[in-house]
Amino acid sequence: MNLNATLWAQLVVFFILAWFTMKFVWPPLTKALDERAKKIADGLAAADKAKADLALAERRAVEELRVARETAGELRSGAEKQAAAILDAARAEAARVVAQARDAAESEAASAMQRAKEALRDQVAQLAVAGAERILRREIDARVHAELLAGLRQELK
């Protein structure tokens, strides 16, 4: 362990190497390390954000689905209501038409019956007159007995 000039040489080498490392080794390495740390942090943040976005999208999808289902339900119930209304209206219309037809037919029948009655009454009156004519022959003068005949006809009504 003798001391000699090696000591000073080593001292100089020490500083040259340290200077070289400071100049050419340390900055790029620490820069790469810092950049990678930043990248990793960014990646983690992005992953978190993506996860949050996904959760949000899922919630929105569920909401959309619910709204769509509700709308469809509303549409269906509306359609059913409308169909029922149309059916009711058609049914009422049909009833009205039927009633109208029946009324018309009834009034027709009533007037026909009236007409038939009138005709029948005339014929009966004429028959009665003819019968009475035949029975009475001469005694009865249509002109003289018109008042009688009219009264008879009135009675037959």
Binding site: N4, A5, T6, Q10, F20, V25
Partner: peptide
């Protein structure tokens, strides 16, 4: 014990060789 006129060639050689290797590997 102390003689500044002497220099250890072996120490200097290996130390510089290894020092240069060190910084080159790191570089």
């Amino acid at each position: 014990i102390v003689d500044w006129s002497v220099i250890n060639l072996d120490t200097l050689f290996w130390s510089v060789l290894l020092g240069v290797s060190t910084v080159l590997i790191l570089a």
